[in-house]
């Protein structure tokens, strides 16, 4: 535990409802990440703060990004344009890469707090 971590946050992380808190942060993060790319970072920060460990924070960030990407892919499948998205080359890589990396990097806040 870092010296910068508020006691209340520590209680949340280590309390009985720690998984619920993390799950809630995850859901809020998915919503934020679907609104703007900054939301992906903010979502990562949220799950990072709620995660009990740095490792768990990174994994949660990664899952968060993966979930947003999955929802995106699903929506494209429904509107019938997934194949075209997949064929966009650099833009495809950028959308996939940013989705996985941004929340993961955001979750890195767990190292300090």
């Amino acid at each position: 535990m870092s010296l910068l971590t508020p006691a209340a946050l520590t209680d949340l992380r280590e309390g009985d409802r720690s998984e619920i808190v993390l799950g809630g942060a995850f859901l809020v993060g998915v919503v934020l990440g679907s609104v703007h790319w900054v939301g992906l970072v903010a979502g990562g920060v949220l799950v990072g703060l709620a995660a009990p460990s740095l490792r768990r924070a990174f994994l949660s960030g990664l899952y968060l990004g993966g979930t947003v990407l999955l929802l995106f892919a699903l929506s494209l499948l429904l509107v019938g344009t997934f194949g075209r998205w997949a064929g966009l080359g650099q833009l495809t890589l950028l959308s996939g890469g940013s989705s996985l990396l941004l929340p993961t990097l955001g979750a890195g806040i767990r190292g300090l707090v």
Binding site: H36, S75, L76, R84, S98
Partner: peptide, 19 residues
Amino acid sequence: LSLAAPVSGEAWGPAYGAN
């Protein structure tokens, strides 16, 4: 990132309703 972020990227607006 504004262009290509999943779901919210500006590039994907034309993807909805294209098919």
